[in-house]
Amino acid sequence: MTFILFFEQLLNGMQFGIMLFLMSAGLTLIFGVMGLINLAHGSFYMIGAFCAALIAGLTGSFWLALLASLIGAAIAGVLIEIIIIRRLYRRDHLDQVLATFALILLLSEGVRWIFGAFPLYLNIPNILNGSIPLFFDIIYSKYRLFIILIGFLIAAGLYLLITKTRLGIRIRAGQNDRQMISALGVDISKLYTIVFAIGAGLAGLAGAMIGAIQSVEVGMGEPILILAFVVIVIGGIGSIKGAFIGSILVGVTDTIGRVFLPNFLKIFMESANATSMGSSIGSMLIYILMALILIMKPSGLFGKN
């Protein structure tokens, strides 16, 4: 196991983490500001990817497709917020879980109804195809570097939005005291719709970027949704900073564990067993991490008690 391979896997873990961040940033904002548990967040990831595939198919442009994913998912978010979600803010978590669980069924099947049962085609542009050498003989995929870059830009943008703009002040106020901010004359329902749209749009963008190197198909959002929940719980719910650190932590743990655990176990046992056992534990690793963190810090790394 060389240093180069290790570093490359570290980058892979980071890239995975960045994608998780795009998902979990919206999720944690929506929870922090509106107090809503949104299981249907993964559906926006899927909607974004399908919008992108549709536009890429029509225009042939990847960049337009990315834009479409962001806008398409945000529009879907606004519509769903106005029609359904806003009736759930005052309900308890149970109703929210059930309603958004039902929303997953509705949206997944609806998308399948429109686009059919087969996966769609979406590919990265030629300019990002292939790999480039970094330092120390490390060769790394251009597209994955692009993802990491976009992720950091968005993280920085979110940071500025929340600390430096008027909207950000309102969002922070909303997190602290919901009654107070509406008493001060802020149009709370508009604020909620905007926050929801931002969350949905980011999820859609993530779906398109990942759909381009994986596959665009119905049901693609749910596995990543569960991981995004793991992330925000580790980071502390409502905290963007927590979501960022949680994302990187989960991404790196998952990747490194999956790759190195089988090799590590080969020291103790025969090869075939080690491979099998290592992959088994590897797939459980992030849940073990989450349980450990919560047992030590019951409200996550950066959560308010």
Binding site: L5, E8, Q9, N12, Q15, F16, S141, R144, I210, I213, Q214, S215, M220, P223, T255, R258, V259, P262, T275, S276, S279, G282, S283
Partner: peptide
């Protein structure tokens, strides 16, 4: 090399590096 991936896994960056 012989690698078992997670069922349902969609990202193979780690395996491709291997």
């Amino acid at each position: 090399g012989e690698v078992y991936t997670k069922l349902g896994q969609k990202d193979y960056a780690a395996e491709i590096a291997q």
